[in-house]
Amino acid sequence: MAKDALGSFELQVLLAVMRLGDDAYGVPIADTIEEASRREVAAGSIYITLERLEGKGFVTSRLGESTPERGGRAKTYFRVTGNGVRAVRQAQRTLTRLWSGVPALHGGTA
């Protein structure tokens, strides 16, 4: 896979971060993906993916506030960079082109 190409889970995480805007940290990111995929998401996978995305320059992170229910540990907030948005758009165009060429998926629910 090319270095700037997005894997399936990377795309999900990036989309969740974009949807959440300024409130994107681990817990709401996991909730957003779980809600959409209706599957339990491993918190560890989200952080590993975000570290990879940060390495690719698709997201940036900053340390936020801590709360008592977090055991005094700070939140890490994430924000999608311009490169990240471009990568998501590229993935969207690629997938749309591929979907439009599959007649079995037109209007079906399977």
């Binding site: 940290y25 918190a43 560890g44 992170s61 540990r73 939140k75």
Partner: peptide, 19 residues
């Protein structure tokens, strides 16, 4: 657990557990 964001990850798990 490893990684530079390990404290945040553990904090997230605590928050979800208390939730």
């Amino acid at each position: 657990a490893s990684g530079p964001k390990k404290p945040s990850l553990i904090g997230d798990l605590h928050e979800q557990f208390r939730g």
